[in-house]
Design a protein around this nucleic acid. Structure first.
Length: 271
DNA sequence: ATGCGGACCTGTTAGC
DNA sequence: TGCTAACAGGTCCGCA
């Protein structure tokens, strides 16, 4: 699943079905996600009117009268709006039954997702409180990154994927943004000039905007909340193209492991 | 404080 | 063709 564009697409997809509705009940078929779903989740949420749907990083927040449902899709999670006529499948772990008789169904084969509840301000929650800025916000600037990176030896790609530095930049878009900015993924974050961070920040913003516009990258087990797949993958220039020619210079793209994640780059275009 | 590697779990695919 | 190992969009946590 989900890099930011998929999460954002999911949010936009489910929003119209949830707004103005009340949660009638929650059916948990399997509570073993990354953290156990609170056993009293149904009690906490039933009869709760939905106030608003937002997102912080890749966490989806469903605010109700008395609290907030915190949802994360992990690696393989997805949300779909269905009707009772559609039988639950193997990995459909949770159904949220709504007053309009629609069902928000949470599916997650790998169980890396999360579904939690807080009665407090969700932004103060342990999982959210230290998150870095949203990349598409004004707070995310070259100066910000440059200052944060000062004296840090971590490879720029790992640095970018650290959600305490900036949220929403997953493996695909980290690869793509570094290629677009001409920066070698293994370069120490603290050794990159402000000017080059300028290029990087612009690249991240541009690529994420474009991907959201396209409705998310098509990947194996993702489908949009209305069931239609996204179709951005054909625009990817390096991710998934290891060994193939660089679209700019034609040189064979390198593929390596960096921080346990597949990393693809052009050794001629990225220094 | 920083950085690294392991962990969570299932499904799909590459390679022998 | 069939089995096994490696890998997949994330990110928290513990340890050095």
């Amino acid at each position: 699943m989900p890099e930011l564009p998929e999460v954002e697409t999911t949010l936009r997809g489910i929003k119209p079905h949830l707004e103005q509705q009340t949660i009638c009940s929650i059916v948990v078929r399997n509570s073993s996600l990354r953290w156990p779903i609170p056993p009293n989740i149904n009690k906490l949420m039933q009869t709760q009117p939905i106030i608003e749907l937002t997102r912080r990083g890749k966490y989806l927040l469903i605010k109700t009268l008395d609290g907030t449902l915190i949802l994360h899709l992990g690696m393989s999670g997805s949300l779909r709006v269905v009707t009772a006529a559609i039988p639950a499948q193997k990995h459909d772990h949770v159904d949220i039954n709504l007053s309009n008789h629609k069902i928000l169904r949470f599916t997650d084969p790998r169980h890396f997702g999360a579904l939690l509840w807080t009665s407090d301000d969700p932004l103060k929650h342990t999982l959210l409180k230290d998150l870095g800025p949203e990349p598409l916000s004004q707070a995310f600037t070259a100066k910000y990154l440059f200052d944060k990176a000062k004296s840090r030896k971590m490879p720029i790609k790992s640095f970018l994927m650290n959600s305490n530095i900036v949220v929403d930049v997953g493996n695909i878009y980290a690869n793509e943004a570094l290629f677009a900015a001409g920066i070698h993924p293994n370069l120490a974050a603290g050794k990159i000039s402000l000017l080059r961070y300028q290029k990087l920040v612009e690249a991240i913003k541009m690529i994420l905007r474009a991907a959201i516009k396209k409705g998310g990258t098509t990947l194996k087990d993702f489908s949009q909340s209305d069931g239609k797949p996204g179709y951005f993958s054909q625009k990817l220039k390096v991710y998934g193209r290891g060994g193939k020619p660089c679209v700019v210079c034609g040189k064979k793209l390198e593929e390596v492991r960096l921080g346990q994640r597949t990393t693809v780059y052009c050794e001629k275009c990225q220094k």
